[in-house]
Design a protein around this nucleic acid. Structure first.
Lengths: 206, 206
DNA sequence: CGATATCTTGTCACTAAGTGACGCCAGCAT
DNA sequence: ATGCTGGCGTCACTTAGTGACAAGATATCG
């Protein structure tokens, strides 16, 4: 099975699962229900996900995949600030992915459902690994270097907090004007990452 | 049931569970086995833990509880570096807690067992909350402040990476001399936290 | 186009994680 | 002594998750 096809199927299952989790709660949603909603047998669900709750993972991941992609395409000669600003404004013209709202809802649920919180943390564990590669590559340090891992962990952590913050703001219907200016958002993210990495990750490389 | 008594019972269960997880693997260890090992009924195990894997949490927590305690007792007028150095050297004269090795083994298992990794991440999620209080208090910022939460998240993240690093070194039988000098260890931890918080958390407050 | 090999899914039986309900008893106050 | 409370054991039960095998889809090669 091609990697792409598998990822798409996982995402499709994840969408239905997340919808059900949000509508009726995690405990009240059974594996059978998820399977029925997506039109597969229950057995197939367990072939693609280790547990009921982890069905939410692809949707949660989708919420940060654009940022990770942007980080990956960050050219060495630019500052993170500038790169994120241009890319985010460019992307903001396109319609936002439909999964974003669903992802925020999952984060919200993770506040009260421990099982979902573990999934959320595991998703950012993946982000941390990605960051490890990106930062390690940028700093030209050996893979698995302790410094690089700390930078990556700190960067992933602040992005997670920012993500939770924005998600909470959107869902509670709070004032969203701080997040409409993509240049400002880019500056906040870049500043957070730069601060969390002691100023090491952010500047252009000569 | 007093909070203390409950915590002690949870720790007792956790020790047996961790031992079994290490000796025979997580999948091969049943709830019944854990219950038998600690001399309780299986039902009682589920009264104290949400899941089989989360039985490992108190032991994992025990591995960082000393550091969190030290952070909590950090006086405002001292630098984190100095405080940790004196306290760690003082403590290093006492015998190290017996659970430390067990905790390292759980972290090691978390590398290959996803279910245990979630528990590990959840434990550090708790550490992050603690850090939130400590840092928020020290910076005299309102509780739940976004900046404070980011500092706490970054600090908890780097401590987690350091912890994993040291644990791996101990278990693989690597050279442990870098970790014998408590002053040096304190400096590394304090430096990591200071770096991850952009230099904000670490200095004495006038 | 056809035959075969591979890969994914469905079905069914089964294990074990986790819950609800109820009764027991140790501790404690009256 | 009596009544209450809170933790524990027992047992029945639900359901998440797995193993094994058959069947259908799909790709590959002639």
């Amino acid at each position: 099975m091609s990697e792409q096809r598998r990822a798409r199927l996982r995402l499709e299952i994840s969408r239905e699962a997340a919808r059900l989790f949000w509508e009726q709660g995690v405990a009240a949603t059974s594996g059978d229900q998820i399977a029925a909603a997506v039109g597969l047998s229950t057995r197939t669900i367990w072939r693609h996900f280790r547990s009921k709750e982890s069905c939410a993972e692809p949707v949660i991941m989708q919420g940060v995949v654009t940022l990770v992609t942007l980080m990956r395409s960050w050219p060495r000669h630019r500052s993170l600030d500038d790169h994120l600003a241009t890319e985010l404004t460019r992307i903001s013209h396109e319609p936002p992915p439909v999964d974003n709202l669903l992802a925020m809802k999952m984060i919200r649920l993770a506040d009260t459902e421990p099982a979902l919180r573990t999934v959320w943390l595991m998703a950012y564990d993946q982000v941390e690994r990605e960051m490890c590669v990106i930062i390690g590559d940028r700093l030209e340090r050996p893979a698995g270097d302790l410094e690089g891992r700390m930078y990556a962990a700190a960067a992933a952590a602040v992005v997670r907090v920012l993500d939770a913050h924005i998600g909470a703001a959107v869902l509670t219907g709070a004032d969203l004007t701080p997040f409409t200016d993509m240049t400002a958002v880019a500056r906040r993210i870049a500043h957070a990452i730069r601060t969390a990495t002691g100023g090491v990750v952010g500047a252009p490389i000569a």
